[in-house]
Simulated assay, not measured.
Amino acid sequence: MEIELGRECDVDNWMQLVNKVKDSFPGLETKEALEEHRHTVLGFMRKGSAICARVNDQIVAALLFSREDSMLCFLAVDENYRRQRIAEKMVTCMLSLMNEKRDVAVTTYREGVPEGIAARAFYKRLGFVEGKLTEEFGSPVQELILKR
């Protein structure tokens, strides 16, 4: 397995993963939303803000981040590759590319939402702490902050 920056030529493989996990992410319900996400991914790739984990030619995990906003924007791991610390390695890679003096934010499902149990536990294990409650794509979420 290799963890590396995603390139524009990776977008089709990237979107295959997104299609597998889309039901876990609000805002990816329609064909139009997925096409918009594809354009978003390409923008992140052009800025060097997309990280992927690759096994052979298959992308098995994907992460988008914003240096400007000091934010982890998207993180997904194929269910067949979970519990192998891939996400942790990708977050470590992301942190090495960001300003080490700025806190890092991520939003995920609020406490008590079944779809968010694993994600919240993962982020908390990495040191993220609960922040403000907000909403994204019409879904109630909570910001988690990694103090740096």
Rank of each mutant, 00 (worst) to 15 (best):
G43Y: 09
E29N: 07
P26E: 11
L144A: 00
C52L: 06
E79L: 13
M94W: 02
N80T: 13
A53V: 13
G127N: 06
E36Y: 14
E130A: 04
V55T: 15
M98I: 06
A53H: 15
N19E: 14
I145M: 02
L146F: 00
R7G: 09
R67G: 05
T92E: 14
V106H: 00
I86S: 04
E100N: 08
S96W: 06
L72G: 00
R54K: 13
F122E: 01
K20H: 12
I59K: 01
G43I: 03
V11K: 05
K20T: 11
R82I: 05
R38C: 09
A50I: 06
R67T: 11
D23G: 07
G131E: 01
V91D: 00
C9M: 11
L64P: 00
T134N: 08
L97N: 07
G127V: 01
E130I: 02
R54D: 08
F128G: 02
E100L: 10
Y109I: 05
N56Y: 12
I86V: 09
I145C: 01
L146E: 00
E79W: 11
T108W: 01
T107G: 02
N99Q: 12
V21N: 03
E36T: 12
P26H: 12
T134I: 07
A105W: 15
F128T: 06
L63V: 10
R125T: 12
N80A: 15
A62Q: 05
S96I: 05
I117R: 13
G27M: 05
E2W: 11
L5S: 10
E135K: 04
D103L: 08
L97P: 01
K89H: 14
E88P: 03
F65L: 01
E111D: 14
V113S: 05
E32R: 09
G6L: 10
G131D: 01
D78M: 14
D10M: 05
R46Y: 14
R7Y: 15
F128D: 08
L5E: 15
N56F: 13
R46N: 13
R38F: 14
K31H: 12
R67H: 09
D78P: 11
D103S: 11
V104E: 05
F65A: 01
E32F: 11
A105Q: 12
D10T: 03
F122H: 01
R7H: 14
V104K: 04
A105S: 13
C93E: 15
E136C: 04
L34F: 08
M98E: 04
V21C: 07
D12I: 10
N99S: 10
K22G: 06
N13G: 04
F25M: 09
L146V: 00
F74Y: 12
A105H: 12
P26N: 10
N13V: 04
V141N: 05
V104G: 02
L34T: 02
F44S: 11
E79A: 10
V60S: 13
C93W: 15
E68H: 07
D69P: 01
R46A: 14
C93M: 15
